[in-house]
Design a protein around this nucleic acid. Structure first.
Lengths: 131, 131
DNA sequence: GATAGGCCTTCCACTCACTGGAAGGTCAAG
DNA sequence: CTTGACCTTCCAGTGAGTGGAAGGCCTATC
């Protein structure tokens, strides 16, 4: 299978797949004309990568998860640990963003948003001890 | 004021302040020895930048907000619009992360996490139509 | 056989917002 | 006079791709 079809199957842009080969996540063969030749296992890996990345796993997490996937003897606990650590990072990030949202919501609510120059948003951002 | 004190006041690393000068966000003067000399207005700007960045505004948003802050005639509506657009991006990001979290929570819950090799997380990630 | 177009290849540069480090100048204390 | 903490500039790297140029290959049509 050429890179175009592989991209379609996996739901990734061809450029991204070349990049994944570059950094050693997949190792497709080559046809005599130099085109990459993707087998079923490559497609599976790319699909795996597309899903894991969509869930926000880092490339290095993906590398670890793929290695565990290829190791039929691995303990599911190893996978679970990576997923749980990632879950914690996501929870933290959500909490951060919710704090930002709350602060911004207050600022936007207090801003008249009209033609007058007075603006609580700018005032607060410039204050050494802001809202 | 030297860059070290300015950094302390504003709550930013010196490296970041130099970077902000590089990209034209602040323009401190120079002492005769070549050291940057930060005035009150520079400190205020840096403080502003630290807060706006902490709220997740992009550098380009910060540039716009600083320009509005320096324009005493600006309408508060302009500021409000930038803040509200940013707020929307934050809301979207929170929703994305919550979806990720929900999917991952399900996967982690279904994974035995013991010595056995069977792992619903890996199975699902490799599935063309995943959880 | 020529040509058009749609693939494919490599390589280089760019993104964003810094961060790290090297090499060297300056300043205050002891 | 030396030590150590500052400061300066410049170069390179981060993560995870994306954009584009220059050129090769493959198929279809004229």
């Amino acid at each position: 299978m050429n890179i175009g079809q592989a991209a379609e199957q996996a739901g990734l842009p061809p450029k991204t797949i070349r990049y994944y080969e570059d950094i050693g996540l997949v190792k497709p063969g080559r046809d005599t004309n130099g085109y990459r030749a993707f087998g079923d296992k490559d497609i599976h890996k790319l699909t795996f990568l597309a899903h894991a990345r969509a869930l926000g796993f880092s490339i290095e997490d993906c590398r670890d998860l793929l290695a565990l996937w290829e190791d039929t003897q691995r303990a599911s606990a190893d996978v679970r640990r990576i997923a749980q650590e990632h879950l914690q990072r996501i929870e933290d990030k959500i909490a951060d963003l919710q704090n930002m949202r709350d602060t911004l919501t207050t600022l936007v609510r207090d801003c008249a948003g009209d033609d007058r120059p007075d603006c609580p948003i700018l005032n607060s951002l410039g204050d050494p001890r802001p809202a």
